[in-house]
């Protein structure tokens, strides 16, 4: 199974939780910008995780999801799970 990219993750977040007010300003540093600065709270992360679980057929631990502080950390969690499924 293909791994999720930052671009795909941010697109899913936009669909699930809207455009975070800090996303446009993050530029190249986006993967390591905290969700808080990007404008996403824990519910936005849970909503995003639920969509990823459905679309990618993976299971994600809610606590680990909400402990992810940046897109890179969340991607690492998701892609680790994707690898397990594969």
């Amino acid at each position: 199974m293909t791994k999720l990219t930052v671009t795909e993750l941010m697109e899913i977040m936009r669909e699930c939780a809207g455009e975070g007010e800090g996303v446009a300003a993050a530029g190249d540093g986006l993967p390591d910008t905290t969700f808080e600065l990007l404008g996403y709270d824990s519910l936005a992360l849970l909503e995003t995780a639920a969509r990823i679980e459905r679309d990618y057929g993976v299971r994600l631990d809610d606590d680990q999801v909400t402990e992810s502080e940046t897109p890179r950390e969340l991607l690492s969690l998701v892609n680790g799970a994707v690898t397990e499924v594969a």
């Binding site: 936009r14 699930c16 939780a17 809207g18 455009e19 007010e21 519910l43 936005a44 909503e47």
Partner: peptide
């Protein structure tokens, strides 16, 4: 309203 508020 901003798009962040619409899904919620």
């Amino acid at each position: 309203l901003p798009s962040r508020l619409l899904p919620q």
